[in-house]
């Protein structure tokens, strides 16, 4: 039936179910390995046996404190933020039938970051739990604004118009954010966090406060990935298949706000993950969003931890993960664009 040539040039058949499941298991299994490596790398390398000792026989030595107070929260934040932004991007691409949709490009991250900066600068709020609600608020307001801007005029919310509206809002909010940050004369680290996204200096308390919300968002996304797949087939089909379009669009939007808002509250507006990872997942598993969402979580988590750790391992430079991802993500994104024929209309 299927010749070797067919398989070699264009995939004709769907990949079988079991390799997809196996690949997912591998992706998830790779995370602990990556996580251990991330704990190991830093100004002072901590070998594996001493990592274990910090858990089993914590002795409040400098090494153990660094591990618990610096590297562990940083690694956990990386895993969470990566998984959340990637899954948020996957949901957005499904619901808007828009290959360019992502929390970064459509202004959700910028909205969340702006709201947080506003809360810090104007109201002097500094609790991670309170700031998170500002991030949700900002993400939600940005989503509504971009959708309203993007669907104005003829033809409704086309992918191109949504992307343009997102780019405009992002640029606008980013400059406002910069203005506030420059006026505020806060530490350079803070500026960095809220303009490009960074994992450094996040306290464990922030991870423990915000993490559960992100995990809830991830769980919600996995549980609703079936209806999200049906939603991705377009409004006509989804309605004739009996889907309550308004309800499911609202649920999807709420999930995106939850995932992206919590991610920004933890690490600032980290770009590219939400855009690139769902496309990587799609190349691996095909167009079924149940699989894309399932794959996006471990791939996104792994990629962010990797991007945060590799510069430290190679040169000892503590580069903000947002910068690393923009450097790597740009070329990867171009490669993805060239592989796919996108109908942007």
């Amino acid at each position: 039936m299927r010749t070797r040539d067919d398989a070699a040039c264009v995939r004709q058949d769907r990949p079988a179910r079991s390799p997809r499941g196996l690949g997912l298991a591998l992706a998830v299994a790779a995370l602990p390995v990556l996580a251990l490596w991330a704990l190991n790398v830093g100004h002072a390398a901590i070998p594996l046996d001493r990592l274990l000792a910090a858990v089993t026989q914590f002795d409040a030595s400098r090494e153990h404190v660094i591990l618990w107070e610096v590297r562990l929260p940083r690694m956990l934040a990386g895993l969470l933020v990566g998984a959340q932004l990637a899954v948020a991007g996957a949901i957005m691409q499904a619901v808007t039938a828009n290959p360019l949709a992502s929390p970064g490009l459509l202004g959700i991250n910028a909205g969340a970051a702006f709201a947080v900066v506003l809360a810090i600068a104007l109201a002097g709020i500094d609790g991670a739990g309170t700031l998170m609600w500002f991030a949700f608020l900002g993400a939600g307001a940005a989503a509504v604004t971009v959708y309203a801007l993007g669907s104005a005029g003829r033809g409704g919310a086309t992918p191109l118009k949504l992307a343009l509206a997102g780019a405009v809002l992002t640029a606008f909010l980013a400059s406002l954010t910069t203005v506030i940050l420059l006026r505020d004369q806060t530490t350079l680290d803070n500026v960095r966090l809220w303009s490009v996204g960074s994992l450094s200096g996040r306290p464990m308390s922030a991870v423990l406060t915000i993490g559960p919300w992100g995990l809830a968002g991830l769980l919600g996304a996995v549980l609703t990935s079936g209806p999200i797949m049906t939603l991705s087939l377009g409004s006509d089909l989804s309605r004739t298949l009996g889907q309550n379009l308004v309800l499911w669009r609202a649920i999807s939007a709420a999930l995106v706000v939850l995932l992206a808002g919590a991610a920004v509250a933890l690490a600032g507006p980290v770009g590219f993950i939400g855009l690139v990872v769902p496309h990587m997942a799609r190349l691996l598993v095909g167009p079924d969003y149940r699989w894309i969402i399932a794959y996006s979580a471990p791939l996104g988590a792994g990629l962010v931890v990797l991007a945060d750790t590799v510069p430290r391992a190679l040169s000892g430079v503590d580069m903000p993960v947002g910068v690393t991802l923009a450097l790597v993500g740009g070329p990867v994104f171009i490669a993805l664009v060239r592989r796919q024929r996108w109908n942007l209309r």
């Binding site: 995939r11 058949d13 769907r14 087939l233 377009g234 006509d236 089909l237 095909g286 167009p287 079924d288």
Partner: peptide, 9 residues
């Protein structure tokens, strides 16, 4: 003209 991704089985 119903539409679905070309790589859907």
């Amino acid at each position: 003209t119903p539409r679905a991704p070309d790589d859907l089985a």
